[in-house]
Each structure stands twice: as structure tokens, then as C-alpha cells.
Design a protein around this nucleic acid. Structure first.
Lengths: 351, 351
DNA sequence: CCACACCGGCCTCAAGGTCGA
DNA sequence: ATCGACCTTGAGGCCGGTGTG
């Protein structure tokens, strides 16, 4: 910048003002500086600027998994909001690995961001540890609960999972299995709890079964395949997340079963690709747009200095019944022993 | 850091060395400094460090579209490689918007990254403009061609598209339509050209048809739906990218057509979700792992000071024939006029 | 508009200390 | 006691900008 100032025949301070877009420089000089900068191919060093002014317009965003479309959608919403308020996002990818996540947090924090948004991996103690005494505005989302000592935005997973389970029960299912990635993911645990709530309420506690399948679709595929090959296989599956649904669907395909005739499937979270499936997949839909806006709103308020007690926002998810959930087939195999139940069942609609 | 040094009872220089992980400090003092730092909740300011040493271990990565799983996979490969060499990625998302992309490039560059990787949006003149006289090591990937004045890693899209088209032609298709996002995306254009090559070579130039459908699956859905409702609809679709495939599949579903009986579909690029479809989707598979490694290799070489003439690496994609491509049905409707062709066709295998 | 101090860590450098051989 | 090898110190300049007088 010194060079630019020299070339433009002004002092360093003036050049700085021009490049920062500040007031108080005559149009003529402003133009001179601009020209000189262009000619020299000058690019401002925002590191230095932020160092000196100890102000930053970058927001760190630590995402656990970029293959999960829910996070991507959320990220896009937040990014647009941030941009509209003059902030930009510094993205960091934890790849569902707590250690890597901790490193990413340190990385982001050491770059003096103005604020930070994080969706933790499982075992979020790591994350908390890193975030302790972090003095920047912080919002945590999705995989946290109300006990978290920070601003949070979450979906009421427990309630949503309970509603979803109720839907399956109302269709006449009893052997409903819940497939979840990991129980040390706060929201997964909540979802499992919601499922258990509903099963108990319906007097189906003995059929309740939560299968932990790990974080990848490969694992969930294997787990589901195992489930489906049991003698008394579930008549309905409820997958606790996007990734689990992917693996489960592949398993259903590989087991040559039909949705929903042979088995019903309800997915927590939809994904764009689900729209091409036949039948359409019933799912729990989280209000991504609202969650994203809430995250930014909370962060923005803090950025503007309005600090207050940690706020916990909880959004409501809704059940979207489509075609992958239907009443169970009566006694389709020798293993099916519940044929003569008293519960009335609607005839299976032909798809 | 001064405080840390004081608390640890060492000099500032020593503390600096410890925090930077440099050699030449005795284990005892090293521990003292570490303890003091932890107690004070000290976090190193890497902005200042990088400013002074004008060295950075961050690599900027500008991604055009995080909803495209190909880019995500690529990103993961590159990130692992970078981490293994002691670098970390600074992610920036262009959302397929050239203006936003330009801004992201400026942003990344102004943060003094050690190197930069970019997969451009359409109309990459914007990008070139921003990258002109950028003095950091640079690798551009995927959406560039060999004429590009920088290191590039690409897939031989033209060849791959030509192979794919040959496959469809060999099955007996003539009315093959190529659906592409945008022709100002270099690789999309190459794919379209490859398709045209093959059509011409087979004497099917009069049937050749390239439909530009835009960057979103919504647009590709609409375009495909239009195509499929024509009186003489294509017997085979070849989609030029992930996103186009998504829209096309939804259109096929909505038009209540069957794959591959009513229409064949070949997709350039696969995606994890395609594995759940029935029938399985034939696709052109790009060697993501190899591309990612190549990108890093090229960048790493430059980071270590071995500068040379721009290198252009071109990887080979391969055709994976699955079940969504089959010989066309003979004369299924009044509109089908090619029933009695001389070309021999294999009987339609029952799926 | 210019001059100047300054953000926070880095680097160099001369000078002195510790330690085992 | 001597010597070289290695650790440690403190000062001061510096990176590239910002903000005040």
C-alpha cells in the first residue's frame, strides 16, 4: 500500500482511507489512488487491517458433515443472511471427527473471527472444551440441547420423533425399529427418546428397539440389511437422519423388499434426492429456513453488542406423510405372527 | 502473549517459540509456557503471526456449489491430503454466482493464503480477472480447459461424453437428447461437444439435440418434463451433470415413465443417492480420488517453490453401465416412427 | 492531508548462562 | 579450568495496515 500511496502521490494514511472506503478524501485523490492501485495490481491485506483495528467481518462456521444436505441448506441460509448484513463466512469442515473439529475450532478462533457458529460432532465435550472462555459471540445449533451454556437454535427433535412414531403406530405397525447414527449426538438421542416415548405411550414398549448404526451410510446399510434379514423383521423403519435413510434405502433395495408393501420407512430429515424416489418418502421436515434465520438473528444481536443471557430457541418440525408409510401387510410370511390382531387395518392402497 | 511469558517467567521470545512449536526450548520451560497459556486461556493470534512471517499454512478453496456431491467428495480428498502435509483449507462458497465468486476470491486472497484452489462458476472470465497477477500458487480444476493459463486438473469430459453417447447408440437409440446445465461452463460445453462428436460419427446428426437447462434441479426438471411431453420424445436422455440428473429423474417420475423401458437415462457423474434407485443409474464416473490427489500434488509442488510452466493434467473418466440404459422399445406409440429400422436390436432384458 | 504511534506476534542479534566432556 | 554446544534473554525493527492529532 505504501507503493500505491507513492505512485498516487499521496500519503499512506490517505491511501488507507481510500481503500477502506472511508470518508474525507477528495474525489480527485480518491481516483488517483484507485488508478494507482489497479495499475500495481494491489490487493489489500485484510489480515493487517483486522489486526490493527481488531475488528473483523468474518464469521467462523464449523460444519460437521458436508455430505448432509440439511447442513448445506442451513449453511446457505445463514450465508445469505450474513452477507446481507455485511459479514462473510469462514467455513471449516469437521468431517464428523471430534478431534478434527477441535482443531477446526482452534483454527477459526485463531483467525480472530467476529463470531462463530458451530454444529457439533458427537461427543461434543471436545467442542465445549475448545469453546470455553472463547470471547466471541457464539451460536451453536442443531446438535445441542437446552442445557447448553451458549446460545442455541435447535429443532424439537423429541417431539417430532414422537409424532412420527405415532403416525406409524396409527397405521397399525408394532414392530417399529428406530435406526440412529449415534447416541452421543444430542439430537439423535432426543429423537430416539421421542420414539421411545411414543412406543411406551402406545403400550408397545416390548417392541421398541433402537439400533445404533454409526455415522456413515455404509454402516447404516449393513445394520439395516441385518435387521431386514431377521426372521421377525420390523414392519416399519424410522431412520433418525439423512445418512441413515440413505443406507436403509439401499438395504431395502438390496433385500428386494418393496416400499411400503414389505416394510414402511419414515425418515427424519428429507433431502433433495428423495424427491426422485418412487414411492415418495414420508419424512420429518425441519424448518431449515427458520433455523438459519434464527441462528443469524441470535448471532447478529450479539455482534451488535447486545449481550444477554444465553437464549435457547427451539423450532418445530412437521411430519410430511407421503407414500413410503402404509399399514403393514397381514401375515405375508411364516414369520409374521401377528396376523389375527384385533387392531383394524385399512386395506393396502395400490400404488 | 506477553502476559503468558510473564506468567511463565520466561522471555517473550521463548514463549513465542513454544507457541509456534519451534525447536530450541528445553522441555521444562516448554511445559511452563504451556501451563501458563492454558491458565490464562491464551489463544495465539495467527493473523499476527502470518502477517509478520508472511507465511501461511492456509489454502483457499473456492467451491461453486456445495449441493453437488462431486465437489464435496473432491473437497474431502483434497482436505485430507492438505492436512497430511500440514496445511488447512479455508472454504469459500460461490453458490454458482459469478459475482459472488469474484468476491469470494478477493476475500480469500486478501487473507494471505499460501495457495488457492478454485473450481470456477460459469462465465469464468470473472474468475480470471480476479486471479490475474495473483501471486500465490494456484490450481484450477474441473471447469477449465487446457487453454487455461494456470495449473489445471480436469477430466476428459469430451471423450467420456462421447463414450457414453456411443453406448446409447450401440443400444439402438437415435433420438438421444443431451441435457446440460449451461454452455458457458467449460466442462459442460466439452461434454456437449463429446456428445455431438459421437452423434455425427454415427450419422445421427439430425437427431442431435442439446438442451440447456440452467444450474438448478428445478430448471432441469422443467426442461426434461417439456422434452418428455413432446410427441416424438427422445428414447434416451444423457444428463451432463449431477444436478441435471436429479431434475431429469424427477421429471421421468412425474411423467410416469419407466426407466429404462420408456426412456433410457445416462448420467454424467454419479452421486451417493443414486445407489438407492431402482433401476440403478448408468453413469460416467470421474476418478474423484485421483483428481483430488492431482490437485494437491500440483499445488504442493508449487508451495515448495518448484515453479514451472503451467501443467495441465487430464484424467480419464469411465462409463459404468448399469440398468437405466437399455435398447429402446420398438414402436410403443403412434409417434414412434422408427420401428422398422434395419439396425438389429437385442431383446429387452427383463429387469 | 500528513506524521506517528500502534495492533500482536516474528525474527535477528549480541550477550550471557548452563552443562557435559 | 577450558571448550564447544545449546538454551535463554531483552531490545528493537518489522509485517501492512488503522486511527488520532
Amino acid at each position: 500500500m505504501k507503493d500505491v500511496a507513492n505512485a498516487a502521490g499521496v500519503s499512506l494514511g490517505t491511501a488507507s482511507k481510500v481503500m477502506a472506503g472511508a470518508q474525507g478524501v477528495s474525489p480527485a485523490r480518491r481516483q488517483q489512488v484507485w488508478d494507482a492501485a489497479r495499475q500495481l495490481g494491489y490487493r489489500r491485506n485484510s489480515l493487517a487491517a483486522e489486526l490493527r483495528s481488531s475488528r473483523s467481518t468474518s464469521i467462523g462456521f464449523v460444519v460437521p458433515d458436508l455430505t448432509n444436505s440439511f447442513f448445506i441448506e442451513l449453511l446457505c441460509v445463514v450465508e445469505d443472511q450474513a452477507l446481507a448484513s455485511g459479514y462473510r463466512l469462514l467455513l471449516a469442515h469437521a468431517q464428523e471427527d471430534p478431534e478434527r473439529e477441535a482443531e477446526r475450532i482452534r483454527f477459526v478462533l485463531s483467525r480472530q473471527v467476529a463470531g462463530m457458529i458451530i454444529i457439533p460432532c458427537h461427543g461434543y465435550d471436545h467442542a465445549i472444551e475448545e469453546l470455553r472462555e472463547c470471547d466471541v459471540p457464539l451460536v451453536m445449533a442443531d446438535r445441542v440441547d437446552n442445557s447448553f451454556p451458549a446460545n442455541t437454535v435447535t429443532t424439537d427433535s423429541r417431539r417430532a420423533a414422537s409424532d412420527g412414531t405415532d403416525h406409524l403406530i396409527a397405521l397399525g405397525h408394532e414392530r417399529i425399529t428406530f435406526i440412529v447414527n449415534a447416541l452421543d449426538l444430542v439430537n439423535s438421542r432426543e429423537r430416539a427418546d421421542g420414539y421411545l416415548d411414543a412406543m411406551k405411550r402406545a403400550g408397545l414398549a416390548r417392541h421398541a428397539r433402537v439400533v445404533v448404526c454409526g455415522m456413515t451410510d455404509t454402516e447404516s446399510h449393513a445394520a439395516t440389511l441385518g435387521l431386514l434379514s431377521e426372521r421377525e423383521r420390523p414392519t416399519a423403519l424410522f431412520t433418525g437422519a439423512n445418512v441413515a435413510t440413505l443406507g436403509a434405502l439401499r438395504a431395502i433395495r438390496d433385500a428386494e423388499l418393496r416400499l411400503p408393501d414389505d416394510v414402511s420407512l419414515l425418515s427424519f430429515d428429507g433431502a433433495p434426492w428423495m424427491s426422485v424416489l418412487h414411492p415418495r418418502i414420508s419424512s420429518i421436515h425441519q424448518p431449515v429456513e427458520a433455523v438459519g434465520r434464527a441462528i443469524w438473528q441470535l448471532l447478529h444481536k450479539q455482534l451488535q453488542g447486545e449481550s444477554s443471557e444465553p437464549v435457547h430457541l427451539r423450532m418445530k418440525a412437521d411430519l410430511r406423510v407421503r407414500e413410503s408409510t402404509a399399514p403393514p401387510h397381514k401375515a405375508t410370511g411364516a414369520a409374521q405372527q401377528n396376523a389375527g390382531r384385533t387392531r383394524k387395518r385399512a386395506a393396502l392402497a395400490d400404488r
